[in-house]
Computed example of a mutant assay.
Amino acid sequence: MPPILPSVSKELRKRLRQARADLLDAVRARTGQQDGEAPAIGLLAQLAGHESSLLHEIDVAIGKLAAGGAGICESCGRGPSM
């Protein structure tokens, strides 16, 4: 059984993708990029430290959900039902 319910995983994935899109929209607005325009290669270099870290954390969380590792303790490897 996965560490978190599929319905919870689906909702988390949805919220994380929305948070990522919102953050990129804010950065695009600040840097003058148009809606729908792909981020410039150097976009991450232009982000403030907080925004860059937040994007990284969101991407890591999305990756964990995709790999089925969400809800597993990174220190001991145990899930909530163990």
Rank of each mutant, 00 (worst) to 15 (best):
L47V: 11
P3F: 06
L54S: 03
L23V: 12
G68K: 04
G42P: 11
L12Y: 09
D59K: 07
G77I: 02
P6V: 04
V8Q: 01
Q46L: 05
G71A: 03
Q46V: 04
D59G: 08
V27S: 12
A40E: 15
G36W: 05
H50R: 14
T31F: 09
I62E: 03
V27M: 13
I41P: 13
R15M: 10
S81V: 09
G63W: 05
R17I: 10
S75W: 00
A61D: 10
G71Q: 01
P2T: 02
D35E: 15
D22K: 15
A21K: 05
R17V: 10
E57L: 13
L47A: 02
G69Q: 01
H56R: 07
E74L: 11
P80M: 12
D22I: 13
A19N: 02
A61S: 06
M1G: 06
Q33E: 13
V60C: 01
E51L: 06
I58C: 05
E51R: 06
G36L: 04
R17D: 14
I41A: 13
S81C: 04
G68R: 03
S7A: 02
E37N: 11
I41E: 09
I41D: 11
K64I: 00
E74V: 01
L43M: 12
S53Y: 08
Q34D: 13
L43A: 07
L47G: 05
A61T: 08
C73I: 04
K64M: 02
R28G: 11
A26V: 07
E51T: 02
S52F: 09
G42M: 14
K64S: 00
L43N: 07
H56C: 10
I72N: 00
A67H: 00
L16G: 06
L55A: 07
R13L: 13
G77E: 01
A66D: 09
A40V: 14
S81I: 03
A70Y: 09
G42Y: 11
C76Y: 08
A26L: 13
R20T: 09
E57V: 06
E37H: 10
V60Q: 02
A40F: 12
H56F: 14
